[in-house]
């Protein structure tokens, strides 16, 4: 555990909580892509199957359980409790275009050809692109609520901090996981355009709206 890992995890946790609170307090999931949230629930489920096979630490186990629990709670709020406010017409990204190639890639490129390892690889690849339905939705409507942009910023920052964590681990522990690093790099790059808008607009007190 190093400072980048810890702040990365906390940033990820903050993102998840911000989104849950936003939906709960406003009693609405307007502007939120349910498809991205389903993908994140799938990501956590397939990655944290190791909860059943290996114990690392109390921190590790509780964070995994919190992430999984919050992911399903978010999906429940969007598709069940506040379904009336869900903006399905704008959430039109075709997720099969992500899930199918990512599944194929996980079978082809992995550390070890076993079910658990392929599912873990699948979750790493899927996480790197799971935000695309949400970004697509924002580009379609041309705007996002400020609280939604805080959510996206924390979520993007988390993987960027993990990149620093992997550099740290390479130098100090000789640890190198190319699958996680390359997928994490892709994931972070996808947020760059958003980071730019966040810094130039949202942090200056303006609402995030895209030019028509």
């Amino acid at each position: 555990m190093n400072v980048f890992r810890l702040t990365g995890d906390l940033s990820h946790l903050a993102a998840i909580i911000i989104l849950l609170l936003k939906i709960w307090k406003s009693r609405s999931c307007a502007g939120i892509s349910g498809k991205s949230q389903i993908l994140f629930a799938v990501v956590f489920t397939t990655r944290y199957l190791d909860l059943l096979t290996s114990f690392i630490s109390l921190y590790n186990t509780s964070m995994k359980l919190i992430y999984i629990g919050c992911a399903y709670a978010t999906v429940y709020l969007i598709y069940m409790k506040f379904r009336a406010t869900y903006d399905g017409n704008h959430d039109s990204f075709r997720v099969e275009f992500l899930v199918v190639p990512v599944g194929g890639l996980a079978v082809l490129i992995n550390h070890n050809f076993s079910l658990m390892e392929i599912l873990w690889t699948f979750s790493i690849y899927l996480e790197s692109v799971a935000i695309l339905p949400q970004l697509f939705m924002i580009s379609k409507t041309g705007e996002a609520e400020t609280i939604t942009t805080h959510y996206l910023f924390c979520l993007g920052l988390y993987r960027a901090l993990y990149l620093l964590n992997w550099i740290w681990r390479y130098y100090f522990e000789g640890f190198l996981d190319m699958i996680a690093i390359l997928a994490g790099l892709v994931q972070t790059i996808l947020y760059c355009d958003f980071f730019y808008l966040y810094v130039t607009k949202v942090l200056k007190g303006k609402k995030l709206s895209l030019p028509a």
């Binding site: 890992r5 690392i56 590790n60 964070m63 390892e117 873990w120 000789g174 640890f175 190198l176 699958i179």
Partner: peptide, 10 residues
Amino acid sequence: AIGRTRHDEL
């Protein structure tokens, strides 16, 4: 330690 040797990351 090249490759995935741990389950410790989230």
